[in-house]
């Protein structure tokens, strides 16, 4: 992959959007070299630590382009430009 930037769409649901000013959908760009994986246990920057601890929180469902991330290798999935990542909390009351 030669792009410098990855453009991603991140969507929060199931109550997680409350952590982001109640905005569900976010378009973001990230440097492609630093963070080409959704979850990389070996990186140590603060931002990725957050992602790391986040990815470990069971009870939050992740979909990559509308597919359960468990079918995509979970944290080993390598992000592509234009991917849509949906994060849904199951932890809120029903």
């Amino acid at each position: 992959m030669s792009l410098d930037q990855l453009n991603l769409k991140i969507v929060f649901g199931g109550g997680l959007e409350l952590l982001f000013s109640n905005q569900r959908s976010h378009n973001i760009s990230i440097p492609s070299r630093v963070n080409s994986k959704l979850y990389n246990g070996e990186t140590t920057t603060t931002e990725e630590q957050n992602i790391k601890s986040f990815s470990r929180r069971p009870g939050i469902l992740v979909l990559i382009n509308d597919t359960d991330w468990e079918l995509e290798g979970e944290g080993d999935y390598v992000l592509n430009d234009g991917d849509e990542i949906v994060l849904i909390s199951t932890l809120h009351g029903g």
Binding site: G13, G14, G15, L61, L63, I88, S89, T90, G93
Partner: peptide, 20 residues
């Protein structure tokens, strides 16, 4: 629960989620 949430997501059902 995972399947309930996935079902709601794929069926685009309208639900509310906040903790009491």
């Amino acid at each position: 629960e995972k399947e309930i949430v996935m079902y709601a997501y794929f069926k685009k059902l309208d639900y509310f989620s906040t903790e009491c």
